[in-house]
Design a protein around this nucleic acid. Structure first.
Length: 419
RNA sequence: GUGGGCGUAGCUCAGCCGGCAGAGCACUGGGUUGUGGCCCCAGAGGUCGCGGGUUCAAGUCCCGUCGCUCACCCCA
């Protein structure tokens, strides 16, 4: 029995899980203010969904998927990303029937079989949105601005890079030109890039090998090949971003590892992170829904890598003290302490008590460590007199509270200390 | 898939040229008949990753192996 989590997976334990929860809740609350609603998807799909959606030639499909055969002989795959699954659900449930656009957000684990390293895991969590049904630049602008809002809300500084990868009209001509260019400079390319130059020339653009970088610097860029409509789309998007004063950098070499992107692609990068610097990425995918068998439906969206966000150090509000720890002194007080804690919990106040029958000192220590604002002390005297001793932990002051008034007094005191 | 670094207490790590397995933090109890944080005392906690070899003797040296980690590739 191996008592370790599988390679590339991790447990997120308290108190870290509390930080995660806050970030996720803040993000999803923001998504809702933009009109997005949650879609909850299976973590696995028929392999076909990803093979056709993401693209047969991509690294993800060729070597990074957790694929298995179920007992019925079907090939299933743990989702390496969510967009293909969203598109599948959109088609299956005819989500367009209620009118477009459809605005959805999702969260949850994704799986890719890669060698783990900082900011890269085999199971990782994403938070993302999809805006399905609009072909217009304002849709791209909305998701980009939304994503920027997510980061600014956490006080994470990011660089925004955008590009257009063209569409069916203009991309083929560019790819052809690039292939020819790379062919002429084959001698200077690394082995991988020589292969890529033939199979998937766009991928050469983000190669970091020195010799390749030199070739890439002088390579034709997509910009020069964009067709009129794509150029116009890009221009309008940039105007909108400028109109809301969102700084961006146009990066003609920004390409994505998924085939479904058309026109707009973008990436939010953390300049302080090393190799794995993309905190979030997305773009337009006007062909995906059609590719999976639905009606041609334009769409745009992004996905945020939660592990990387946590690595980037989102600002966390300090943990404030709250709630009450009920201290029972002596055998006979325990029953009363249990009832008291239950009463407080029922009233919506965080309350806890000792479960190990420990000394008063140990109980006070637990109250301290647990970050409680108050402790309620019940001993022989209190039992006999029908009152509680209420202790303000940070002020180290105590007061006598009549039994019937505990809840009211506590509410008032918590209110005072919370403000 | 390729290359580097590291595996000793729950965590972070020390352990020299081979000679009784340690510290800090955390945890438990006590110093205070019923009171936390600071301090003091005590305690509990170990397959030194695993397997083999060398040696009177291995955490330490050698070989193998597994794991973790970082980088490349790729990507969130």
């Amino acid at each position: 029995m191996d008592v370790k989590a599988p390679k590339g997976t991790a447990d997120i334990l308290p108190p870290d899980s509390e930080d995660w929860r806050r970030v996720v809740e803040k993000g999803t609350a923001l998504f809702r203010t933009y009109g997005y609603r949650e879609i909850m998807l299976p973590v696995m799909e028929h392999t076909e969904v990803f093979a056709r959606g993401i693209g047969q030639g991509t690294d993800i499909v060729q070597k990074e998927m957790f694929t298995f055969t179920d007992k019925g002989g079907r090939s299933l795959t743990l989702r390496p990303e969510a967009t293909a699954g969203v598109a599948r659900a959109f088609i299956q449930h005819r989500l367009d029937a209620a009118g477009l656009p459809v605005k959805l957000y999702y969260r949850g684990p994704m799986f890719r079989h890669e060698r783990p390293q900082a900011g890269r895991y085999r199971q990782f969590r994403q938070l993302g949105v999809e805006l399905i049904g609009s072909p217009y630049p304002a849709a791209d602008a909305e998701v980009i601005v939304l994503c920027a809002g997510f980061f600014s809300g956490l006080e994470i500084e990011t660089d925004l890079a955008i590009n257009s990868v063209g569409d069916d009209e203009c991309r083929p001509a560019y790819v052809e030109a690039l292939r020819k260019y790379l062919g002429r400079h084959e001698g200077k390319l690394c082995g991988d890039c020589r292969r890529r130059a033939v199979e998937n020339p766009l991928r050469v653009l983000d190669c970091k090998v020195e010799g390749c970088a030199e070739v890439i610097a002088a390579a034709p860029t997509i910009e020069d090949y964009l067709c009129g409509p794509c150029r116009e789309h890009q221009g309008e998007l940039e105007d909108l971003l400028r109109a809301v004063s969102l700084p961006f950098r146009r990066d003609g070499r920004l390409v994505r590892g998924l085939d479904y992107y058309t026109r707009t692609v973008f990436e939010f990068q953390d300049p302080k992170l090393g190799g794995q610097n993309a905190l979030a990425a997305g773009g337009r995918y006007d062909n995906l829904v059609k590719e999976l068998g639905g009606k041609p439906t334009p769409a745009t969206g992004f996905s945020i890598g939660m592990e990387r966000v946590m690595l980037a150090g989102p600002r966390q509000e300090g943990r404030s003290e709250d709630g009450v720890f009920v201290v029972a002194i002596g055998e006979t007080a325990r029953g009363k302490a249990f009832l008291t804690a239950q009463g407080l919990r029922g009233a919506g106040i965080r309350a806890d008590l000792d479960h190990l029958r420990r000394s008063p000192k140990a109980q006070m220590r637990e109250a301290d460590r647990g970050g409680f604002a108050f402790s309620v002390i019940i001993g022989e005297d209190e039992l006999a007199g029908g009152y509680y001793t209420l202790r303000n932990m940070s002020a180290a002051t105590q007061e006598r509270v009549e039994e019937a008034e505990l809840l009211e007094t506590l509410r008032r005191r918590l209110d005072e200390s919370g403000a």
